[in-house]
Design a protein around this nucleic acid. Structure first.
Lengths: 195, 195, 195, 195
DNA sequence: GATGAATGAGGCTTCATTCAT
DNA sequence: AATGAATGAAGCCTCATTCAT
């Protein structure tokens, strides 16, 4: 797919860099085109409009992001390990690509309501993944059996998201990955059936 | 105070309504002025510019929001009760003013980086309030003594914020306040020293 | 007259200072009012509108300017002396009041066509004064008898005006009054019947 | 050059016409664009902002104006002839393009201080040209050897400028070119070494 | 497929002037 | 006579999108 549409990927990569460097409102189509080494009009051969570029950035990047997390968690044996892996992968991937972290945590959130709905659609599989880990944990009796899955998912995602956003805004002045054990302990503590 | 600056408050109230109805990007100064029943230019007698109106909306509304929470929690005897009250007040206040919920959870987040920094400044006291509840709980031995206060605060705020945002985006199709006990159970479970 | 309308004169004096300090476009009515120690609305009790303030500044200041020149030249015996006195007075008065020089040479020229026509009207008596000196010089046979009075007046006024404007724009880095003899020599050279 | 930048020149020409017809303050960008037969935004492909359009009008037009004068004077043998040619060219060029005369003599002078400084920069070569004629005349002993070149230049430019401005304001009710001999006589009279 | 010059709608802000007190 | 809060018209500029080449 990448080799089939080299321009498409050039534009996606350029968009991430340009948005990370200039912010959402400073990322004009012409700037992205220039960074991608194509003409302005070429963008419109591969994308319906500017919003489509941004949605696609999110789709491509978060698609990979989520895929890798799912892949890693699937290798783990129980819900607690899967949750730890999910946190680890969430933090490590965004740690490894700071441009992407800026774009997903700060810049794309400045988009309008329509784009935000699209973004939510892209996140769906990630949220489903969290849901199934929670359900699995309940079945495994690792987690309390009376958990409200939706609320737990919102807690988990809200917590991770808030932590990463703070880390990005603090300009990564501390290490994100080293927080994994504590975060894992907090979240399993909330869910745990052990008392 | 309200009677001292009637126009100022008219404009703030109008801004909330207009932004809730039209979205951040659909809220032109002229629309806010019209809704407030004043001339466009009058806005600039009370605010430096459009951004200042938006910051002030957040300051005024979140100021009251936070103040009421602090007031209520201060009447409670221990950290667990304080946390429950904080959750209760957070949910009930936004439940009671759906326009405000739309504005704070969805629309004002579309603002530029500068405005977002201002918003963070306004939120500071709320985050401090959470911190002191956590610390109090640790002193009271209700919470584990080895908690990382920053992480816990990010978990609590991230969780509440994500829950409310989802509720707003789902167009309040379910009741927010009835979720308080479960959310409180989850969070205290995460923090609790009891095992 | 000054004692009869103290506010009127306060406003005129304030206008000169404000325009000299802030430039034509930086001199809002409210700034002039503040400098004069009156309310904005008070300006409109003494002047028809802002343009009327500016015209009046010019009228009052240039009225005095011209009057003093006429007074001084009238004491001189012949056209050559009168011309020297006119140059001397023109330069010395503007040298003595740098604010006024800025206002008349630079700032008020940025006004619109209508105001400029008013300004020309105010200058009329000065131009007439020049005319009569030229005519007197011709009668006295000091000047050539075939002079085109209009052209000569334009030469004299254009020369003095250009010299003062340059001096103001150079921020009075040299002395204006010491140029009088040379300027007088040039102009009388142009007019002189002696060959 | 004209064919290389057709839009650029269309806009310059349109600006002269629009300013001559509507005055400096009545010349909105949209009016200039319409007169040039381009979209408003097109202006900004060729000019940084509105001020840049006006500066460019002056640069282009006065550039040609000055070049033609320099070209003509260079063919003359002595300073007196050069001065006559300079006056002739100054008057004839502005006579031939009344729109340009209105723009340079009346409208562009209403511009702000920044634009005026730019205008002065453009005029520099013209003033230098005058200076060198004066110096040449002194070397040729046609002019007095003790002339203050700066003052003489200010006299010459101030005189010509005042004459043209009056002619424009009088709506060209008389012929400008026929005044050349008299003006030349006056100015050479001022400078002449013959006594 | 690729280009990039051209388009044109849309909104924040200033400030001279008014008028109720 | 004096105030000053309120008015509201008016214009520069950006930038997503198109389309002739």
């Amino acid at each position: 797919m990448k080799n089939n549409k080299p321009k498409y990927n050039q534009i996606i990569e350029a968009a991430v860099k340009v948005i990370a460097a200039n912010g959402y409102h400073g990322s004009q189509v012409s700037k992205i085109a220039k960074a991608a080494g194509v003409a302005d009009g070429t963008i419109y051969l591969y994308f319906k409009n500017k919003e489509d570029v941004l949605v696609s950035v999110f789709e491509e990047k978060m698609g990979q992001f989520i895929e890798k997390i799912a892949e890693s968690t699937s290798k783990k044996q129980n819900a607690e390990e899967k949750l730890r892996t999910l946190i680890e992968m969430h933090f490590s991937q965004l740690s490894a690509d700071y441009d992407l972290a800026i774009v997903t945590q700060l810049e794309l959130r400045q988009s309008n309501y329509a784009l935000r709905l699209q973004i939510n659609k892209v996140l769906k599989p990630y949220l489903k993944e969290i849901d199934s880990i929670v359900k699995e944990g309940m079945e495994e009796k690792l987690f309390r059996s009376d958990l409200n899955v939706r609320l737990v998912r919102q807690m988990i995602f809200g917590t991770l998201d808030e932590i990463v956003t703070n880390w990005v805004m603090k300009e990564q002045k501390y290490d994100l990955i080293s927080q994994v054990p504590e975060v894992h302990a907090l979240l399993t503590g909330a869910l745990s059936s052990a008392r």
